[in-house]
């Protein structure tokens, strides 16, 4: 019995394989671009060129067009007989056209498709995703680097698929993610794209993105110039607290940031700059809050905070846009110089 079992085990372990497919028979997709034109989805897949012996052309692209996103993705698979693998896909880039059309169908597809990973980064570009992904000088690594750089640069904020889709699904929150642009065969981060429901609404510039990051994330080595002087600083031990309450049919919000400041340039008496730093931070956050609330968008999760403090009111509100547009807010910053 033991011999028979050992034989079975050895057969299972030694004679198994990836369904007999070699690496060069697979299309390992690293990233995907989605555009929408003439009432059709256009999907661009960037994959590793496993047939390139000299490594000159490391990546290749394939296109699929279809009435539905599933059909477009499926058309890629039927083109060259390669087995498509999406499990290594690290980003999804949405073109301007699909963002204007609406992302719901696309997001539903990626959410349900067994091969797609929920941790893939979501990016938006202000032109065609196809143009960026077919540009030979732009590599998937470059796009990944931009996606991952937000904690360092403080000028973009890339959300993974599951967080982006969660924000789209939440009726009171507006989703936002990094916006990139193509310029002279290169790509640059251009702030953050904000969505109303599932369609692109407007973008935040670098300063406004920094205001968003100062509240909702923890940028580690960003460079923030002081408004009234030629010095710049970075923050550490940052703690942001929110107070959100509902009074006289109006939403009130109080944001407080406490942090330690380190100056990049030499300052003779850094304590004197404390007030200027606080003013700079206050202005940055206020501008972003003002812009997003004017559009009726909650990109700071203020409404989720209201749900925790006053659940009954939260579920009684149907028109979030007008509530947010009338929100009264204050921002306080307290810093200490290291």
């Amino acid at each position: 019995m033991k011999k028979l079992l050992s034989l079975v085990m050895m057969t299972v372990l030694l004679l198994s394989g990836c369904k007999g497919k070699e690496l060069n028979q697979k299309m390992i997709v690293l990233g995907m671009g989605i555009d929408f034109s003439d009432d059709n989805y256009l999907v661009t897949a960037v994959y590793i060129n496993t047939e390139s012996a000299d490594g000159q052309e490391k990546y290749q692209t394939k296109f699929g067009r279809g009435k539905t996103i599933t059909q477009a993705v499926n058309n890629i698979a039927t083109q060259n007989g390669l087995e498509v693998m999406y499990s290594h896909m690290s980003f999804i880039l949405f073109g301007k056209t699909v963002c204007q059309h609406g992302l719901n169908d696309t997001l539903q597809f990626f959410s349900g498709y067994y091969q797609c990973r929920p941790s893939a980064d979501i990016l938006v570009c202000n032109n065609s995703a196809k143009d960026i992904l077919t540009d030979k000088k732009i590599t998937p690594e470059q796009i990944n680097r931009i996606a991952q750089s937000y904690t360092v640069t403080g000028v973009n904020r890339t959300l993974p698929f599951y967080r982006f889709y969660a924000d789209i699904l939440n009726p009171s929150v507006s989703a936002c993610t990094s916006l990139i642009t193509q310029k002279n065969d290169d790509i640059n981060s251009q702030g953050v794209a904000v969505f109303h429901d599932d369609t692109f609404a407007y973008s935040l510039n670098d300063e406004e993105t920094l205001g968003l990051l100062l509240v909702s994330e923890n940028p580690s080595s960003e460079v923030i110039p002081i408004t009234e002087s030629h010095k710049s600083f970075s923050l550490s031990d940052k703690k942001t607290s929110f107070s959100v309450w509902w009074e006289n049919n109006t939403l009130y919000c109080d944001v407080t940031i406490n942090a330690t400041v380190s100056f990049y340039e030499y300052a003779e008496n850094p304590q004197l700059l404390e007030k200027s730093v606080e003013k700079t931070l206050q202005k940055l956050v206020q501008n972003t809050l003002k812009k997003s609330l004017q559009h009726g968008d909650d990109i700071f999760y203020l409404t989720k905070k209201l749900r925790q403090t006053n659940k009954q009111v939260y579920y009684s509100i149907n028109d979030w846009q007008s509530v947010l547009q009338n929100t009264v807010f204050t921002v306080h910053c307290h810093v200490s110089v290291r």
Partner: peptide
């Protein structure tokens, strides 16, 4: 997972 949880068949796996 936030609201993404509700779209998933097996949330623990996600």
């Amino acid at each position: 997972l936030g609201e993404y949880l509700y779209t998933q068949t097996f949330p623990v796996y996600t």
